[in-house]
């Protein structure tokens, strides 16, 4: 459903929250934030939308804009947590990312995605299940559970996600 942002009434706003709130939450949590910080990242994105309504040129892409803004805010909060003082000012409003994985997921999409995870070899299958279901788990915890060197967790995770993306591409 397209949105006329200048004319957005409260019902349309609630519809935006219902449609995109889950995805925004998942993006914030996927960036490794705990629930309190993820809540701030999501609320930051909604407040940026409040500030930016008149300047958004493409209402059809407001979902991608919200997801992108959530990710930017989540990354900024993560950097601030790690002591980067330059990350403490509000993020600039980003251009929407174009990532097919950010599109709305249907139940069937989700089933296909997890079927692809199950088709991956180890250690990818277990590693991705851990990363997804225990988002607060740090590399040290994952390394212990997976019995792998801590320095291997990040590169392995990236390699597994690439393999998953390739599998999903083959499946299309």
């Amino acid at each position: 459903m397209p949105y006329e942002l200048d004319l957005l009434d409260e019902t349309a706003w609630r519809d935006l929250v219902d449609r995109f709130g889950h995805r925004m939450w998942a993006v914030a949590r996927a960036c490794g934030l705990d629930t309190a910080d993820a809540a701030d990242a999501v609320q930051a994105a909604w407040l940026r939308l409040v500030e930016s309504l008149p300047s958004i040129r493409d209402p059809d892409r407001v979902g991608a804009w919200l997801a992108t803004t959530t990710r930017h805010e989540a990354v900024r909060i993560g950097r601030r947590r790690s002591g980067d003082r330059h990350a403490e000012l509000p993020a600039e409003i980003p251009a929407p990312d174009t990532d097919p994985a950010a599109a709305m997921l249907t139940v069937e999409d989700g089933r296909r995605l997890w079927a692809a995870v199950d088709a991956l070899p180890e250690p990818c299958r277990t590693l991705l299940r851990l990363v997804v279901t225990v988002p607060e788990a740090g590399y040290a915890q994952i390394a212990r559970r997976m019995a792998m060197p801590i320095g291997s967790v990040g590169p392995t995770r990236m390699r597994c996600l690439r393999r998953l993306r390739a599998l999903m591409g083959d499946d299309r």
């Binding site: 990710r71 989540a74 993560g78 989700g110 997890w114 988002p135 990236m158 993306r165």
Partner: peptide, 21 residues
């Protein structure tokens, strides 16, 4: 742990599909 954008979105899609959060 701040993944780059495509990684974050793929993980987010997995999290949404898992329905555990």
């Amino acid at each position: 742990m701040n993944p780059p954008s495509d990684e974050a979105y793929l993980l987010a899609a997995l999290r949404m599909a898992a329905g555990t959060d």
